[in-house]
Simulated assay, not measured.
Amino acid sequence: MGVRVGVVVCVTSFLLGALFTHWIADSLTLWKTPVTDEHLWTAASYYSILANGPVEILYFLSAVVVLGGTTILWSLRDGEAENLMFDGGSIFLFGVTILMYLNSVLPKIFDTFASLPSHQLKDPFPRALRGATLELASNNLICSVALTGVLALQAGRFWAESTDSDDLEVDDADELKGRKSRAKTPELRAN
């Protein structure tokens, strides 16, 4: 149990960290007002670098995603109520992230940002790219929140299971005390 949870937490944390690297671009479009053409060109240039980067990075990220998804699914095999609740929620959030990334984020990066028109930072930003840039930042934020939910569910699972094991230890200790006191009582009566 501990190794599986550890793998899920490590994979999710790694993917969350990978999404946080997009903060360079996303912070300019989500959290700055007003969103200027310079902000949009900076974000678009960042995504253009990603679109034209080495394909091995995608292979590595895909392997990490498969490892995480497989580990969460493997945990469901136990069939315990805690696993169904926490791992079911984790699978849902992990799946939402994967679907959003495969259906929205990656196609937008590769289709829209693979080749940008030559520009200066002060040039007017094309209206067609504006919506794609803002939507990409929003999708990255949604994926980050979903993966944070996976971490919260796994922490909840750990807490619930550790509380159960603490209760079992207390029950075992109380039972042992009860046996010792019952064992001493006949000796006192015999004397």
Rank of each mutant, 00 (worst) to 15 (best):
M1R: 13
M1D: 07
G2F: 11
V7G: 07
V11T: 03
V11P: 07
V11I: 02
V11D: 02
S13R: 15
S13G: 15
S13Y: 13
L16H: 04
L19M: 10
D26W: 04
S27R: 10
S27G: 08
L28R: 15
L28E: 13
W31K: 13
W31H: 13
T33C: 09
E38R: 13
L40H: 00
T42D: 08
A44G: 01
S45E: 13
Y47I: 05
G53A: 14
G53R: 13
E56M: 14
E56F: 15
S62H: 08
A63T: 01
V65R: 14
L67E: 00
G69R: 04
T70F: 15
W74Y: 12
M85R: 11
D87P: 08
G89L: 09
F94A: 03
G95S: 05
G95Q: 00
G95P: 02
G95N: 02
T97Q: 14
T97V: 09
L99A: 02
Y101W: 07
Y101F: 12
S104Q: 07
L106T: 04
P107G: 03
F110A: 04
D111S: 13
D111K: 11
D111P: 07
T112Q: 12
T112P: 11
F113P: 10
F113Q: 10
H119P: 11
H119M: 14
P124L: 12
F125S: 12
F125E: 06
L129Q: 02
E135L: 14
L136R: 02
S138F: 09
N139V: 01
C143I: 06
A146Y: 10
L147P: 09
L147R: 11
G149Q: 14
G149V: 12
G149C: 15
V150G: 00
A152P: 11
G156N: 01
E161Y: 01
E161F: 03
D166N: 06
D167M: 13
E169I: 07
V170K: 14
D172H: 02
A173C: 04
D174N: 12
E175L: 10
K177A: 10
R179D: 08
A183V: 05
T185W: 15
P186W: 05
E187Y: 10
A190T: 04
N191D: 12
N191V: 08
